[in-house]
Each structure stands twice: as structure tokens, then as C-alpha cells.
Design a protein around this nucleic acid. Sequence first.
RNA 1: CGGGGCGUGGCUCAGCUUGGUAGAGCAUCUGCUUUGGGAGCAGAGGGUCGCACGUUCAAAUCGUGUCGCCCCGACCA
Length: 485
Amino acid sequence: MPKTENTEIAEKDLDQGESLLAKLALEAELADYSPVKGCMVIRPYGYAIWELIQSTLDKMIKDTGHQNAYFPLFIPESFLQKEKEHVEGFAPECAVVTYGGGKELEEKLVIRPTSETIINHMFSKWIQSYRDLPMLINQWANIVRWEMRTRLFLRTTEFLWQEGHTAHVTKEEAEEETLKMLNVYKTLSETILAIPVMDGIKTENQRFAGAVTTYCIEGLMKDGKSLQMGTSHYLGQNFAKAFDTKFQDQNGQLQHVHQTSWGVSTRLIGAVIMTHHDEKGLKLPPKIAPVQIVIVPIYKEQPDKEMVLDKCKEILNNLSKDFRVKIDDREQLSPGWKFNFWEMKGVPIRINLGPKDISNNVVEIVRRDTGEKLKNVQQKGLNEYLLKLSTEIQENLFRQASEYLNKNTFTVTDQKEFTEKMKSGGYLICFWCGNENCEEILKQKTKATIRCIPFKLPVDQIQEEGYCISCNKKAKEKVIFAKAY
RNA sequence: CGGGGCGUGGCUCAGCUUGGUAGAGCAUCUGCUUUGGGAGCAGAGGGUCGCACGUUCAAAUCGUGUCGCCCCGACCA
């Protein structure tokens, strides 16, 4: 595989691709394969990451006025069929229950691939007047989509997510909501997961089945492929019409509501894995690290041991106020083994503590993001020091990922260059005439698809008009192409 | 659904071509020495070789079938 000049995409990453993802997820004990094909078990360490993402996002969702609720896993088959595009989009990947209680069911039950239909059914009951609007609901749930090909965290048959569903009086209000939540996702990704994203609009090809407009955030993974990390849809009145979700306005007129839906899933954990790692293993951003600091005691003989462990506990107690911290006091394992173990698990900060440090009232600190060893850090004021360091690591991971994104984003104007550059992955920005066929031709050639029509472009790329990368006709839209998961 | 790979102690795998008493490393247990970047020595326990049928005096090994998982492709808000 030829290495393009400006790219830092390592050849080994290109080769390993997803086996790298599986290796990291399995080794770091985030997940395991389940006995059921395409499904995975999220292990405690992986689930702890999810809980941290979840609690942060849950607060953001509530802070923007939404309330949590829960709707059933089973959806009557007839519901799905009420919206034409929706059923066409989802039918092939639905799991359907036909038996219950030992009898064949009168109406088959679809295991939710998403909940627009059943939620609209309820909305149409709950919404009568403009005074009932906006209705702002979120649910945390599991969903099932029968995918042909699965990958740990990135695409599994069952996965966990959050789906927001809102209903509004006007189109404008609903569109504003759609963009507001997309922006929440962007903030979550950048400030919590330390992953920079491209935000934009999906082309018709990739629009959510039943939506008017689909917006997305896309992240560039370390192997050069793009990952859709979140979507937000303006649904217009499509579902409202299908489910007769109407309200009476101030003039007494009946109108259909304007709706949105938006979601992110456990795929975000896959994004973290594929963005932050090196040959030693994961690098978890402090804000979602289940263990932010691990203390490794180092001792030789008995009197040392007790003294070292006591000191470790003392430090743990102090740090516990500000951090998720843990002592690895397993006796049978050598310090060296523990260093490698916690590095593989992605713990952002490690403290090595031995007799020498204790006699000098210092500790040795090792940063996971840079590998840097910080010797002789004073025990006095350690919390403040580590709070600062933790922030710095969080920011540094984001900075590194941003640099990577910038270095692997190119503007291309002719097809030869496109084909050549796409070999090594990354984002290619170019003009596109809007014809789906043009995208298809390039997809056949390079496997790349249009990820989105970006909201913002680098300053030097602002240009009113150009020529379609595929057919060379005049084009107004600039799009981002990439190979995708 | 097509192509490929795999299935052997808890884990990673060798053994299969050319049938002949099931192996290694790691892990576990015991003892001693160790512990600042994946510790050493000595000893011990643990497997009806995915399943079924067949060939054979004899099958982890050969044949047929079957089940499962993984990978690649087709598919995919």
C-alpha cells in the first residue's frame, strides 16, 4: 500500500483494519463475542465507559429540556408499515416475533429497529392542543437490526442507544431542534470523547428512512475510514401524517406536528477505540476512563511492602475525592506486568510508588497519552497537579486527533487524484453535481461514499462553483468522500 | 447467500500431509527465591481433540455429513 506524503495513516493500521478493533476490544476486556452470531457481550470495563458517556449525555439531554421515558421493545408489524419509506428502509433488517405463549401470534411483533412508529402512536394520543407542544422525549433502550455483517461495537445485531423524539408546532422550531441536538452530539464527541467530527447533511442516498433531512457527525478513524457517530433527523410531517398526530392551533385549526428524532449508540465506544490507541493498547480520554489513575506499588521486602501499601492507600484516599482511582495491589504480579496491563486498558495516568519515592515525599507519574515519565512529583499538592494533568491529557488527545483529521483531509479536483488519494483513506473534499449515479461510479471504483455535505469548510476551500468530481459538469455542492464503516 | 479460515486442558496454539499410548507456552496449585518495564527454579493437577456416521486391528489425524464462530464480499439510518 503506497503511503501518501501528507498522511500519517500507518500501514499496519490499514492492513489490520478491523481486526485491530477486535483485538483492542477483546484484550482490554471491553467486550466479548457472544454465543449468538453478531451479538456481543459488553463486559464490565466496557460497560463502565458506556455508563460514563451515558450519564454525561443524559444530563445534556435533560439540560436541553427533554424528559426520559420508555416505550416497548415490541412493535406491532402494522405500525411499521404505516410510513412507506420507513418500512422499505427497515423491513430487511427487522427481527420478527411470530410465537408467544406457545401460540402463533395474530399480529406479528417487530423487535424495534428504532421507535418512531410506536412513539408516534402514543404522541397522537397525548397531543391534542398547541399547548401540549413541544413534546420532548428521550429514551435509553436496546434495539435490534439484523445486519449481514457485524463488528464489535461498530455494528452489532443488538445495541444500546438513546433515541430522542420530539414534536413541534412549526417546521422552523423542529429544524432548530434537529440542529440543536446535532450540536449536543458534536460537543459530546469533542469535549468528552476527544474526537473531532465533521458535521453536515446526508445526501438522499443515506437519509434516514422516513426523514426529510438527516444531519450527522462523522469521525475519521485511525485506519482512514469514516464512522458515523451520531445522526439527527428532521422528520417533517411524514410520521405525523402516517399516525395522524395532530394538534389544534390557536385559531382552532387542526395541524400535523413537525417532528425530529436523533440518536447515538454504543458505537461511540468503537469510535473511541479506533481514534485513541497505539501499539500498547487503548488510550482512554480521562472523562470516560473508568479508572483515571492507577497506583502501582513497588516494594522488595516485608517492611517496605507494608509501608508502601500504606502510603498508596493514603494517596488513594486523597485522590478519591477528585478521581476514579485504583491501587493494583495484586501480589502475584510484577510491577512491569502491571504497567503493561494498565497501558493496554488505556488508563490515562499511572502512579508508580516505591520506597525511594516515599523517602523523598514524591511519586513517579506516567502519562498514557505521551508515554512520558514524570519523576519526583511532590506528594504535596498532588490532587491539583493531577487535575491539571488530567485536563491536559484530555485536551492533548483531542489535539492529536484533530491534527490527524487535518492531515488526512484533502481537497481534490480531478478523478485521478481522487482515486490515488483514496487508496490511503482519509477525507476527500470535492464538488459533486448532486447526481446519485456519480457517487455510485466512484463507489465502484474506490469503495468511498459521500459521508456528508459539510456545514463548514476550511477557509481556503470556500469557492462558489466547480466541477463534479465524477462527471465534470458544473456543480455547486462540496461534499466529503470517504470509505466508511 | 458466495469465498476463505478456525473448532484440541481456563487461554493462545502445535500435532493432521504419511493413522499407532494427546503435546507446548501462558494461566492454576505447592514450595523456595523474587518485585523500579510482561520474574526464576523445582514439582503437581487439568483435555471422551465441536458433534454424528463411516473406513480400519487401531482415528485428533482419512471419508461423508452436520453445527457453530471468525474473516472477506454482497447489504446497511
